[in-house]
Amino acid sequence: MAKVVNRMHPDFATQSYVIEAFKGVALVTRQFARNIFAKKDVVTVQYPEDRRPYTPRFRGKHRLMLRDDKSVRCVACMLCATACPANCITIVAQQIDDPAIEKAPSSFDIDLLKCIYCGFCEEACPCDAIRLDSGVHTIPSFTRRDQKAGVINLLSLGTASIAAQGGEHRAHSHEGTAHGRSSGH
């Protein structure tokens, strides 16, 4: 069905602009009065004091998740480092005793200055070991030197994850979800 477009045919009063200008002044004044007496339209956030909450999907600084026994979940499979488009993940792997896990990182660094917070590492990780959900906005600094510290060692930032994972140290609280050593990653 054809849609009827209502074209504007401004009358002379509108086109003369003067009356419209004063109508505009009236409108603006009404809004001014509203904002003076009630602040409910005001959208300003007083930034350093009030902060707008980040959405749950906000991708902030990375964190490495932990197993129940506080050892790191990462198995140094390098999938994240491979997926990373910015090439900013540096992992040094080491062997560990647990035969079901075999590998763990001995250092896990991300250069936050290079990172573009795309979240590909999070997507690639088969162990739910790396996440960007810390909600921490990368901290700015006044000098370039300070930003060198953007290379963070994530091994110190770990937090527990409840996702099931194999390995000898697996906690018993997740019995229902996985069976002994056989559950892989």
Binding site: T29, Q31, F32, N35, I36, D41, V42, V43, T44, Q46
Partner: peptide
């Protein structure tokens, strides 16, 4: 200040 208040700012 005036422009701010009438534009819903502070």
């Amino acid at each position: 200040k005036y422009s701010a208040v009438l534009q819903n700012r502070i």
